[in-house]
């Protein structure tokens, strides 16, 4: 398989109805001295070709664990209990280490949290990108061809070609982020996972990066999974979104739909606690309490200790993630009680 040039990538045909990645009932925990931490519990969602999906939630809700699972990059104390992660129909969890290694970056690439430190300080940026090409396309490209490809990658993210010969510490924060995106595109993957792509960037740069990612996604027909704790980011760039809490997926659906009509109490409270510049002044409703200890998660619905709508049933039975119409799924017994938000989200 040869590397697809950047020009070829634009104009790739995508069928938005075809599923690219299917996460099917993933259950995973970490083993620590004190016991087992239930980090991901029955999470299911589907990413279609050319779709941008967001996963939002507090720190420790399991979204990063899900992301790392897709590339099987979890530390050695992580255990998969059940579930499948199907890419183009093939279960990634069943692959051997070597098979998985071959697919990393080539099929799924990742832009990490704190991309500043994704770079090894002692090598040039260009050499680190070249490394990926040497690993996945060994013997298929000459040095010249590699150089041309990398220059095009940099051009695609708006970086000058000379920067390829520089060291990471010579880049500014925003430039480093762009370079990471360029490297992620190097093997023309079908899916990119962006884990907190804009944390630690100032707002102006944040905006630029997000616009960049959106453009790349549309031009190259790529699917992107955005992981963030910042709802605003998710709102801006995703087509569908999922809300995670304490290792469970509690709501999933069309981004505009979930924002306008959140049906899970947690989502509702989350949105209500986010102030808006343009909307009318309203009282903030901060979430009380703290996320549960996943060593010993609450019985029934994991959110019930903090939920204003909780009843006894919530403490005893876990609500399933049910479709309430139009692809909008909620895991709550009392979703009808969740009131409408006063204003629709302004994009």
């Amino acid at each position: 398989m040869t590397v697809i040039s950047v020009e070829d990538m634009s104009g790739r045909s995508v069928d938005p109805r075809k599923p690219l990645l299917e996460v099917d009932d993933l259950v995973m925990h970490y083993k620590i001295k004190a016991g087992e931490v239930s980090a991901v519990d029955n999470v299911s969602f589907t990413v279609h070709q050319g779709e941008a999906v967001g996963l939002v939630g507090e720190s420790g809700c399991g979204k990063t664990s899900v992301a790392l699972s897709l590339l099987r990059l979890l530390p050695s104390n992580a255990e998969y209990i059940s579930g499948q992660i199907r890419l183009d129909g093939q279960d990634l969890l069943q692959l051997t280490d070597n098979e998985m290694r071959a697919r990393r970056w080539k099929d799924i690439a990742m832009v990490f949290q704190g991309a500043m430190n994704s770079w090894n300080p002692v090598y040039r940026v260009g050499d680190q990108i070249k490394e990926v090409l040497d690993t996945h396309f060994r013997g298929e490209m000459t040095y010249d061809e590699q150089r041309q490809h990398m220059e095009k990658l940099f051009a695609a993210v708006g970086l000058p070609a000379e920067m390829l010969d520089r060291y990471p510490h010579e880049f500014s924060g925003g430039m480093r982020q762009r370079a990471v995106i360029a490297m992620a595109l190097a093997c023309s993957p079908q899916l990119i996972i962006a884990d907190e792509p804009t944390t630690a960037l100032d707002v102006i740069v944040q905006d630029q990066i997000l616009k960049e990612l959106k453009r790349i996604q549309h031009e190259m027909g790529m699917s992107i999974i955005y992981i963030s704790h910042d709802i605003a980011v998710i709102a801006e760039v995703t087509d569908s979104m999922g809300v995670m809490y304490a290792g469970k997926l509690v709501e999933y659906g069309d981004t505009a739909d979930v924002f306008a009509r959140p049906k899970h109490p947690y989502t509702y409270l989350l949105l209500k606690s986010t102030p808006s510049i343009t909307g009318p002044r309203r009282q903030l409703a901060p979430l009380e309490g703290e996320p549960p200890n996943l060593l010993d998660p609450p019985t029934g619905c994991r959110f019930h200790p903090r939920c204003p709508f909780a009843t006894e049933k919530c403490a005893m039975e876990e609500p399933p993630l049910a479709d309430i119409g139009g692809g909008h799924r909620v895991a709550c017994w009392h979703y009808e009680q969740v009131p409408d938000l006063e204003e629709a989200l302004v994009r």
Binding site: A232, T274, P275, S276, I277, R281, Q283, L284, P286
Partner: peptide, 9 residues
């Protein structure tokens, strides 16, 4: 994204 004035909880 900031709010104008402190709000009573």
């Amino acid at each position: 994204m900031s709010v104008g004035q402190p709000v009573k909880p």
